[in-house]
Nucleic acid binder design. Structure first.
Lengths: 342, 342
DNA sequence: CTGAAAGCGCTTACAG
DNA sequence: CTGAAAGCGCTTACAG
């Protein structure tokens, strides 16, 4: 194993100088730098990151906390993040957190154990953040949810404007002539008022109100987590509870795909007997039979902005930011225009 | 930041003793152990892993190399692996390698840069392993491909018996009365003879031979990588080249789902006009419309055995092993029984 | 069973 | 611009 000591010996310089070359310090003569570089290349020397980190008293890697397993949409964001981080020479560790678990407390534990230099949350419950994020000191970003109202000085957030996007989804159904609309998704529970899913739900209710279309959450809304199975069950419950529904908005494409299966199993044709619009815009939405109409979030931009901001804040003393990235309505084949009732 | 020194001071013992308690060395008195433990808990002390690894001269984490992005099947294995590793107190870093890139060379580079203590390959090209794996010294496992014939003493492998499973798939179609069968999948290229996909293909050809059913790879086989789009294109090419096909075996469910879309877009009904069987057994196969018939690999067992073996070999001087795990034919709704032609 | 001390491979003031 | 030296937080022979 070649160490910095070997390079020092071989090049005739001291280890201090080698270290300076390694870290691109300006105060090294060009000649020295070149000679040392040559020895480094020839020996294929790679610095020991443990020693470096120990010395710098900074800590290992960046941790990505993914809320909810098997989420295709998050999967693509994770891949984007990993690539971006790697391009910038940063290592990342991924942790999967159960949909119903407290990701902030999990992060606190991880900070104690592994002392990451930054945290990226993929999804999260705003209430958990409000309550426990104060215990976290490292620069962090929350993706796909907004932490704007929380006021933590080490937490940025990048998200689709969920309220606006949900309104678009509902609006899309209404413009197609639907008035009996069900909504599924969001792992809402009693303490969850700031949760993303209530944001989306709130947006929906507003649009219903604007169009003067009655909407009774107790009847027309069914929470569920992000999985095929849960989407299936939620749609099943909803369709039994209110068979008059002509359309469903699912707060995730995975949920929508589960719901599509449930509808078909109940003997409904899509979109003839039931219209369906999803959320996320996963690649499969363009391949399903029929193709899923959905709201496409900009995964790439969310990942890119999140990483850029985190790296800046890890290295400089900057204020966190809260941004919103664009979305698009993708017209698939699962929404049927209805004759207007009037 | 509490360090081992603080715990020593606070407990009245030397740092050597604290270290022994931390690492469960047997030569510490029960009383001492208890007292030290108390202080550790009270202070919420967590050892600095950089210092520990530096001292132990072992290196950071375990690296998981995932071949091919956006592969749902690999995604679930990765999650399983991460969970298992974490339960055993090991950290894991995930790297995504392009489908057509050389994962072994990428691993060599990673070993130089980060010196992981173990490597897990998810998918891989046997030719690349044969040629370059000799440069890798850390304990490694290859999942979903067999490295049995390679004879490296630091490489285990755990895989579905691809030959047998592919034979089952083809056999399933033949028993349903199909004789004009196309095959898609596998990123075969000229140098690829030991590649997984040729294994699967070889298995298929054998079965055709046994049933005395003609099979012309140039006509009936179309390679493609693991993505919806590639599955779509491969099926499209195949169906144009040989419109007489009544069934397709796709070497991955994602490929199969892309193919399903292509078939429908060409005006074929599934399974009435074209039967389809996939490979992997991803959760969505049970939700697609129609439900996908497929060969289910045992992702959980592959992950579990791989991790168990790797951890053992990291810590003990053991020989690598090459195991095969079970698979199951899942009868979905995409294979139609045909009237026998004779 | 426990302590004192060396040393893992680096970085960074401090001199010169 | 460069070197000598201290020290990051641990582990582990070596004594006793």
């Amino acid at each position: 194993m070649t160490t910095i000591k070997d390079i020092a010996r071989l090049s005739g310089y001291s280890i201090g100088t080698i270290s300076r070359v390694l870290n691109n310090h300006p105060d090294v003569s060009e000649e020295t730098r070149k000679k040392v570089q040559e020895v480094i290349e020839r020996e294929g020397y790679q610095p020991n990151s443990n020693a470096k980190l120990l010395k710098q008293r900074t800590y290992s890697s960046i941790t990505i906390l993914v809320k909810g397993r098997m989420n295709v949409f998050f999967g693509s964001i994770v891949e984007n993040i990993q690539t971006l981080l790697r391009e910038n020479g940063e290592e990342a560790v991924v942790e999967y957190i159960d949909d119903f678990a407290n990701e902030v407390l999990a992060a606190v534990q991880i900070c104690l154990e592994r002392r990451p230099k930054g945290l990226i949350f993929l999804g999260g419950n705003i209430e958990y953040f409000r309550h426990d994020f104060g215990k976290i000191e490292v620069p962090s970003v929350l993706l796909t949810n907004s932490a704007a109202g929380l006021g933590f000085d080490n937490l940025s957030s990048f998200t689709t404007d969920d309220t606006a996007a949900s309104q678009e989804a509902i609006d899309y159904l209404i413009r197609a002539g639907h008035t009996r609309i069900g909504i599924i998704g969001g792992s809402a529970n009693e303490t969850d008022e700031g949760h993303i899913d209530f944001q989306r739900l709130a947006g929906c209710e507003k649009i219903f109100a604007r169009h003067k279309i009655p909407f009774d959450p107790a009847l027309q809304y069914q929470p569920c987590r992000f999985s095929l199975r849960d989407g299936y069950e939620a749609a099943d419950i909803l369709l039994h509870r209110d068979p008059s529904l002509t359309a469903i908005f699912a707060m995730g494409d995975i949920i929508a795909l589960g719901a599509m299966r449930a509808a078909v199993d109940s003997g409904r044709r899509i979109p003839d007997d039931l219209s369906l619009i999803g959320y996320d815009g996963i690649p499969y939405a363009r391949y399903s039979i029929p193709r899923l109409s959905t709201i496409r979030q900009d995964a790439q931009n969310i990942a890119r902005r999140g990483v850029e901001d985190l790296l800046l804040r890890i290295n400089y003393d900057r204020r966190p930011v809260h941004e919103t990235v664009g979305f698009r309505v993708i017209a698939g084949e699962t929404v049927k225009p209805l004759k207007k009732a009037y």
